[in-house]
Design a binder for these strands. Structure first.
Lengths: 199, 199
DNA sequence: ACAAATAGAACGAATGTTCGTTCTAAGGAG
DNA sequence: CTCCTTAGAACGAACATTCGTTCTATTTGT
């Protein structure tokens, strides 16, 4: 079992771990990591201080577990997309559609993944942009370029161009600037994104 | 004089205020607001605790002053661009060129403006995306659409598409993923950005 | 022109609070 | 009974802020 994983042997124990992580996700994204105290997490999760420290090494450990589990979830979702679609066009579009849907269904997950400054509270972490899921996104674009679907560009520029607009919309939506749900904008933003790099 | 402004009557006093703000900008962007203590700022600025509290209401006040002064600086830079260029094409390109140059010359400024979670430490603040400079950027795009330069789209989508890729590259650069300076990518990303929305 | 007076600025040790973490005892499963 | 888990009170460190004092420059009175 991974170093960063919390213990969760019994059934009841696993439930407590889950409650803590969900409470932490809610609180971290609502008020920020540093504005969230352990007593806050105790209250929100209905798990006692002692149990929390029994399951997680420390406060940072809660954040690490969260981060790892969310990254893992993204990875498998993206791998799934890679196996279901062959072209860069379809893959990238599916990624954006997924991110849009997730933002509506689980805004806290999205906020934590994309717009938390993880490195401020998990110092040993690499920047999010170099996490597997982001690498997968760039790889989809690179493959599309090799296949002649996407015009020849600095690969990182092409990736930024394909996904930049969508990520921007996600941020605007999470900040309450957009009033319609993101999927309503999918067609338009995808047309723009693809037009920007299509061969 | 604005409520959020620190006092700075004498010449020496103004210098101290400046030192504190620069030190705070350095520390806030390097380690984050919450990982920065007043003693840290005392050390880095060579201004005493007492003086700092004489000039700023509290720690949050330092952050507010910083934010206000940086937003103001952006505002005037953007207004300048608006007056020097007429078309949306030239204006938006100039904005991106400016942001790229600023990111290289004053990465800390850029990191604080674009990628700090201000609302975690300045609760009363509106999201950055609704600050004047961002509104100005969207307005440039809207005007271009009205003038027929930019195809008819949901305006916010067009704005996200024009600036999304560039903002993404800025983030990648600040996270150390890009090794070449941003201006090297300007031509390519601008071509993509404009192609994505040009009529 | 000079001395005394005044006000603003600078200082850093002291304060009170909050927080993350530890500890000891009780609870419960097998 | 024994071991794992839960509980929440207690602890100590770290923090933002305050306060009493000292310093410095400007103004006032003679």
């Amino acid at each position: 079992m991974s170093e960063t994983r919390a213990r969760a042997t019994t059934e009841r124990g696993a439930a407590a771990t889950e409650q803590v992580m969900q409470a932490a996700l809610r609180l971290f994204t609502r008020q920020g990591y540093f504005n969230t105290s352990i007593p806050d997490i105790v209250r929100e999760s209905a798990v006692s201080t002692g149990s929390i420290y029994h399951r997680f090494r420390d406060k940072e450990g809660i954040a690490r577990s969260l981060y790892d589990s969310l990254v893992e979830r993204m990875e498998t979702a993206f791998s799934d997309i890679e196996s279901r679609h062959q072209s860069a066009h379809d893959r990238c579009r599916a990624v954006i559609a997924l991110l849009f849907r997730l933002t509506e269904e689980e805004p806290e997950l999205m906020r934590f993944m994309l717009f938390s400054r993880h490195r401020e509270f998990i110092p040993e972490l690499a920047p999010v942009c170099s996490s597997r899921p982001f690498v997968q996104m760039r790889e989809m674009v690179r493959a599309g370029m090799a296949a002649g679907e996407i015009r020849t560009l600095e690969p990182i520029v092409a990736a930024a161009s394909v996904f930049g607009g969508a990520l921007r919309l996600i941020q605007l939506r999470l900040d309450g600037i957009l009033d319609k749900p993101l999927p309503d904008y999918l067609e338009e933003i995808w047309a723009c994104a693809w037009r920007s790099v299509a061969e």
